[in-house]
Design a protein around this nucleic acid. Structure first.
Lengths: 334, 334
DNA sequence: CTGAAAGCGCTTACAG
DNA sequence: CTGAAAGCGCTTACAG
């Protein structure tokens, strides 16, 4: 009882024309087709609930109308917010998006990249910052365009990408902390293999040195997650007794850290001021509200997608690199 | 300077065999192929960095190896956690997933469904609970399998799906509140068009009646978001002065609500106890930690995906409906 | 204004 | 053990 999907041929038969003609009117390349023919075809297509087989279309055009996005973990609000923005923009141009969770595992990345080129994706967006050289070679070898978001990939700093001005963000944060009489400012770096981590660290260092406050013992390292934040904060309160603020490299860590702090009797912000980075939606909901260096997350995703699509369409006149200026969002945690 | 992608024909030429043979060995249907031939083909494929064109494959097999997931908004942690689980499971079986943000807009749903069938997705997972009749008709008309997660769709309660035992969860929550001497328990329902909302409401009502505590004036309505929670909570504190607990239909609303409460001088849990529903990751990080009715979110997504894939593979012996029992997670908000 | 034909890169039933 | 051929459903250059 399988209802077979209608094809252009079916429509053509019904209408008494060739499938060439059907194809032309259904794709609006019908400047030369007579109105009666066009109308008839459109009616029949409608009536048959015709849905084009875009796989067949892809095979002949070599375009799939889908893009891939590589994220460490869609569960991380920063990435889901970017993914959302990308999907919105993609949808606007009638693209679909396939998402891939990498968990920073190179084997997954490798597998996914191949899957994506095998599916003829028209482009891919990397929000990973890892060691993607091999993936990138594969993409290049198969002529699939890609752009980076948020996280630099070593050796590709000049490639298509959208980023934040990380250093500027850090100095804004440190300045603010300084103005609030914080002097012993611990810094929690993210994964040291990531370009962003290095940049944020450098921003911290320069700003602290400006005030003559830099001290290596104040530097810690965690991974960009709730658990990473918890773990590193436990280390901090064990190892140094004397600090009055912590600058976390992202909000998730800051949130995890705040929890550990209050559990251990610290008052935020009275005993210790907290700053995060990103301004994910939930930051505002914390108690106290998390002060943070806000990135325009949605816009970054959106721009990345539009950059990619422009690239796909061969618009070579665009800016290749877009940089956003992060902005201090003052709430109650310092 | 376009490097052309290698095809099976290229390999065949190089190896001096037919592409039939190449196809067979590359797909492990090579029981009958001689070892030397197989080895040669494999070597050449490797050397050419051959990546199969799965679009071409799809066109002849009528399978795409991708599934679609429909969510209201990937930015909502509940959905991103489910999406993550689905993607993990899909990946295990070598499927990709395309995600679609519906925002409860029927036009988006309509557009996406067509896009998905046009791309020959092998199945779709709905986490929407809306009025999807039209979409479902399209899917059925094109023989694409689908399963529901978390949210019932009217008229399809007996269809493939994975759900929570919502009523049981509610009574567990009410019992707990009662044991903690809460008597004036406000209930915040979600979108009334959703099956889950109705079920949670009914669970609340029955449990409250059991204690002789039910009172219509305690019922409010919001949408399942941070903002929904804030807005409804403002209404609550304006309209009723006398309440000692609020049971929110999901965590996001509860989190938004807690923020409003503390801003207005209420102490949680001393003045008002709060319970949420879902147990999203962030619930634990709140201050106070959010007590909630936990759903096994990850497992629900995973099971849904496996159900779908089993369905796709024609395994008809499986359970069609899976129900999980939610569990009270006690933290500090009541 | 319209159509025949080739082609996209696979899979698969069949023949030998 | 291997291959020729048809077919999947489109697009598109070309012819008329």
């Amino acid at each position: 009882m399988k209802k077979v999907k209608a094809t252009m041929q079916d429509i053509a038969n019904q209408a008494g024309v060739s499938k060439t003609t059907v194809s032309m009117v259904l794709n609006n390349k019908d400047s030369s087709i007579s109105d009666t023919t066009r109308k008839k075809i459109l009616e029949i297509a409608e009536e048959m609930n015709y849905i084009p087989n875009s796989i067949a279309r892809s095979l002949s055009t070599n375009k799939s109308g889908t893009i891939g996005i590589m994220v460490p973990d869609i569960t991380n609000p920063f990435f889901s917010e970017i993914a959302r923005a990308i999907e919105d923009a993609a949808n606007k141009y009638d693209y679909n998006v396939i998402f891939c969770n990498l968990d920073n595992e190179i084997v997954k990345e490798d597998k996914y990249v191949k899957l994506l080129v095998s599916k003829l994706v028209d482009g891919v967006i990397f929000i990973t910052g890892g060691n993607s050289d091999k993936s990138i070679d594969i993409l290049k070898g198969n002529n699939v365009p890609f752009v980076f978001v948020d996280r630099y990939v070593k050796g590709y700093e000049q490639y298509y990408g959208v980023y934040s001005l990380n250093k500027e963000g850090m100095t804004e944060g440190i300045d603010y902390l300084y103005r609030n009489n914080k002097r012993k400012i611990v810094f929690v770096s993210g994964d040291p293999n990531l370009g962003v981590s290095k940049l944020r660290y450098e921003g911290y260092k320069e700003a602290m040195e400006k005030y003559g406050l830099y001290n290596e013992e104040l530097i810690f390292e965690g991974d960009f997650s709730l658990d990473g934040g918890k773990k590193v904060t436990k280390d901090i309160i064990e190892q140094i007794k004397d600090f009055d603020a912590i600058f976390f490299s992202n909000d998730l860590m800051a949130i995890g850290g705040m929890k550990v702090l209050v559990k251990n009797g610290y008052r935020v912000p009275e005993d210790v001021g907290i700053i995060g980075f990103d301004n994910i939606q939930i930051a505002e909901m914390m108690e106290p509200g998390l002060t943070t260096i806000g990135q325009p997350i949605y816009d970054m995703g959106k721009e990345a997608c539009e950059l990619l699509i422009g690239f796909i369409h061969g618009e070579d006149n665009n800016e290749k690199i877009i940089r956003f200026k992060p902005k201090l969002i003052v709430r109650d945690s310092v």
